[in-house]
Design a protein around this nucleic acid. Sequence first.
DNA 1: GCTTGAGCTGGAGTGCACTCCAACTCGTAT
DNA 2: ATACGAGTTGGAGTGCACTCCAGCTCAAGC
Lengths: 122, 122
Amino acid sequence: MRISEVANATGLSVDTLRFYEKIGLIEPPPRDDAGRRDYGEEVLKWIRFIGQLNATGMKQADRVRYAQLRAAGDSTLKARREMLETHREAIRSQLSTLQDTLALMDQKVNLYRKLEREIEHV
Amino acid sequence: MRISEVANATGLSVDTLRFYEKIGLIEPPPRDDAGRRDYGEEVLKWIRFIGQLNATGMKQADRVRYAQLRAAGDSTLKARREMLETHREAIRSQLSTLQDTLALMDQKVNLYRKLEREIEHV
DNA sequence: GCTTGAGCTGGAGTGCACTCCAACTCGTAT
DNA sequence: ATACGAGTTGGAGTGCACTCCAGCTCAAGC
């Protein structure tokens, strides 16, 4: 796959893909005869995964660290698991913040509706 | 209340409080005889609220817009309610991303534990 | 009356995560 | 043969949300 195809398939820009490679978040893919990046299919799964880590608030430095552990092979399984467990806790705490705030939004929206009706009736 | 007390009570820094005032997120409080900011208690509630909007991903520009509507009084009730409803939807979508990713973390952690055991037994 | 500490202002600096640019090389279509 | 589009590099620029700084004033304690 060429870089533009990966961009299309993932929603990342071509520039972001090269940037991710530069910082070590994506393994440098092999090149074709013209020197162009030639990605394998498996990169799509990886990009989706780091996208999920991103969307759930993992810092870039940590994603890079995870990527490097992954690239280093089986000896880093424990370290990777520990990172995921830490992130899992971060997600749990975000979930509870979001749930609290969702309840607050519901409450405020109802209050505002009520106030809007009262003002209308003046 | 003086600015350092507000900082202490909210966890924001003194600089951030002044910055929030500069961009219109906090109403300029009255000053004492020496020209120092003299905050009322109600600012704490407001800061906690904007902190929740922040923690749930509302952009600064939108929080400022909400603050300005609030400062403008009752005629903006509808606009504020609509902002909160929009944000409520954003929260719902974040919740589902987080839940999906939490499930994925659980799955991966279990897989990693399994692999660690297998490698240990070699 | 002098030091210390908190607060003040306007403006510069920081860190993160991209995003864009100039100047170049290839491969394909006309 | 040439024009065009997609790709390449190294490096500069952007936007967000703070964070820090210099140089100042003021109030309270010794």
